[in-house]
Structure formats: structure tokens, C-alpha cells
Design a protein around this nucleic acid. Structure first.
Length: 197
DNA sequence: GCAATGATTTACT
DNA sequence: GTAAATCATTGCC
């Protein structure tokens, strides 16, 4: 069952990031469905320095973060990789969840075709830049509705117990000072599909 | 260990 | 308007 808009429009982005572990993320391109189960996420809020919209500063790039929850936020990082985020909260409140890793489930052969078949099979989607490439997501997907027919999230009804989810500091945001220490990265404990092996 | 690579942002001789 | 610094990473040496 697809996740409803109401799931994304709640106020607590950290809670949403934790709840997204175990949900499915899929894209459909030319009738080909690819995707898998989310095993790693990070929460970002306008209240802290790690966020592109820190201080509610709106720019051309991050404008979609200020929209209502349930849209995608895709941008280019390091001039090389596209990163996929889920916008949360209400209109004009800029929170989002970065999806960092998934466990491949559907269309694995197509994902290998887009990515190149990695020597280590666990590296197919084990990072934010890798999974967007595997799913065919690029900057054109910015601002898309996440319960549509091109890209969506799915609730399999499986409840992940809290003890199966680890919280740790977020990756690659040293510039954020103290906020870099916030335990806002969530991972499925013991999963071999996580980033930063 | 570190280069690649380009959109985005900020500052402005 | 232009220029320079920055960057939520990856893969190859």
C-alpha cells in the first residue's frame, strides 16, 4: 500500500526518518519498476546547520523543501551525484529526509544495467548517489509527488521494532559544527546494504 | 590516499 | 553582471 500524504505532513521529521526504515521506494520508467526497501535515512531540519534550508533561507535550489510534505527533493552533489530526499512537514516549514541506502527488491537487473554490476553485490544501492543512479533518478525528478505512478513509497505493513534500528550522527556534514553530532541517521541494524561499509 | 565535476551560492577589484 | 569557493560522494590509484 502506498504511503499516504498524511504520513509526510507531520511535524517531527526525525520520527518520520526513523519510520521510513523498512518502507519500500520504487520508480517506474518506461514501464520498468525498480526499487527496494529503505535501510538507511537521515533527517534534516531548517533549525540546524546541516540543512540546505538552515534558518529558513529559501533559494532556487531548496525551494521545494518549503512545499508541503510528500514531494521529492533531488539535487546534484559534488557535481557528480544526485541525492534523493523526501520533503516533510507543512507548507513553509523546510524539513526533509535523505534516503541513503536501500535493499534491492525489484528490477535488480535493470539497476545493474544503470550502475554497472559492482564486484560486491551489496554495493549496488549502498549509498545516496548509488541508489539514485540505480533507480534512474536525476535532477529532473525534483518536486515530484511521491504517491504518483513514477515514484512512490510503499508500506508493507511490517512493523520494525525500535531495537532493530540504530541511530548515529549523519555522514558528510562536518561543516555543520555541533549539529553534525545530532543522532539523526537511522540504519537497519545488521543490514549488509548500508552505506559507508 | 585523492581526483573528478558542475550546479549553486556568495561576494564583489 | 562575473568569479571563486563550496559541496548531504564515489570509485579508482
Amino acid at each position: 500500500m502506498k504511503l499516504a500524504e498524511s504520513f509526510y505532513r507531520r511535524a517531527n521529521v526525525v520520527k518520520i526518518a526513523r519510520e521510513l526504515i523498512g518502507k519500500g521506494l520504487f520508480t517506474k520508467i518506461d514501464e520498468v519498476i525498480t526499487g527496494g526497501i529503505i535501510v538507511e535515512t537521515e533527517a534534516y531540519s531548517w533549525k540546524e546547520r546541516g540543512c540546505h534550508a538552515y534558518g529558513a533561507r529559501k533559494t532556487q535550489r531548496n525551494a521545494v523543501m518549503f512545499e508541503k510534505g510528500g514531494l521529492s527533493y533531488v539535487y546534484l552533489c559534488y557535481g557528480v551525484h544526485h541525492l534523493f530526499n523526501i520533503v516533510t512537514n507543512e507548507l513553509d516549514v523546510a524539513d526533509a529526509v535523505l534516503v541513503r541506502a536501500i535493499e534491492p527488491l525489484r528490477g535488480v537487473d535493470y539497476m545493474k544495467e544503470r550502475r554497472g554490476d559492482p564486484r560486491n553485490k551489496f554495493h549496488l544501492t549502498s549509498g545516496p548517489g548509488k541508489l539514485t543512479k540505480a533507480l534512474g533518478i536525476d535532477r529532473k525528478w525534483n518536486g515530484k509527488f511521491l504517491a504518483g505512478n513514477e515514484i512512490w513509497l510503499e508500506d508493507f505493513g511490517a512493523k520494525i521494532p525500535t531495537r532493530k534500528i540504530d541511530a548515529s550522527p549523519r555522514i558528510g556534514i562536518d561543516y555543520a559544527g555541533e549539529d553534525a553530532l545530532l543522532p539523526w541517521r537511522f540504519t537497519l541494524k545488521g543490514s549488509p546494504w548500508l552505506s559507508k561499509s
